[in-house]
Design a binder for these strands. Structure first.
Length: 223
DNA sequence: GCCCAGGGGGCTC
DNA sequence: GAGCCCCATGGG
């Protein structure tokens, strides 16, 4: 019963935080992309980059007809680098997109429906083996492209929950992810909105001092 | 000018 | 497996 009680308490806090963020920002409709492959590309390009710069890179790819695995395999890596230039780390990211496109072609004949039909956790492990895909990127693909109930942890989430006193400063990705997934209903739309809200809140408040008086979750917990 | 963005790879120890 | 350094543009 002790475990159940603790679980409920954590779940209640998570629900309260979600509700306050949702009341403040409303539904954010992530991921802003036209189709799943664009989500996968965006997940790589947004690594340590501002979304406004990622949008420029994605616009370059689209206007040059390079938004499919086959097209990414065909274009020379130098040309691909130039197209993704605005998102920063352009050489590194061009290689990562090449690795992704090569993986999709070799393992799935470029069929995303075949890719997403895999068992969620087996697919997660497989994605982690692709150059350029780490935990956050893999989980973003699973949640926002494959619509699987996987919670995405990012720097904002870690910072916010540390400041709320809900986790240690250097909590591991897995333990933080488990806090959400073990205490909330495993519904993709909920995880989608929650992560998006945490990022939106983070952009606005995490760069300022903690406990900003305007913050919608400033009094969500005892701190 | 400074800080940091919707991280991850690779290397060392 | 923890601790570094590297990748790099652009907005606040």
């Amino acid at each position: 019963m002790q475990a159940a009680s603790t679980k409920t308490e954590a779940g209640n806090k998570l629900q309260i935080i979600y509700q306050r963020l949702f009341d403040h920002y409303g539904p954010l409709h992530w991921w802003p992309a036209e189709e799943p492959f664009e989500v996968m590309v965006g997940a790589i390009l947004t690594q340590s980059a501002a979304w406004t710069n990622v949008q420029k890179a994605i616009a370059n790819l689209k206007s040059n007809g390079v938004m499919s695995p086959q097209q990414i395999r065909s274009i020379p890596v130098e040309a691909l680098s130039r197209l993704v230039y605005p998102s920063g780390y352009y050489n590194a990211k061009a290689k990562k997109l090449k690795a992704l496109a090569r993986y999709l072609g070799e393992r799935y004949d470029d069929s995303l429906s075949a890719l997403f039909a895999r068992d969620t956790y087996e697919l997660r492990e497989e994605l982690l083996g692709v150059h350029g895909i780490g935990e956050e990127t893999a989980d973003s693909i699973l949640l926002y492209a494959a619509i699987k109930p996987i919670f995405v942890i990012d720097a904002y989430t870690r910072r916010t929950f540390f400041r709320l006193g809900l986790c240690p400063e250097k909590e591991t990705y897995h333990r933080l992810q488990a806090m959400f997934m073990d205490n909330l209903p495993r519904v993709p739309q909920l995880f989608n909105d929650y992560h998006a809200l945490l990022v939106q809140h983070g952009k606005e408040f995490c760069r300022k001092r903690p406990l900003c008086s305007e913050c919608p979750i400033r009094d969500a917990c005892d701190y």
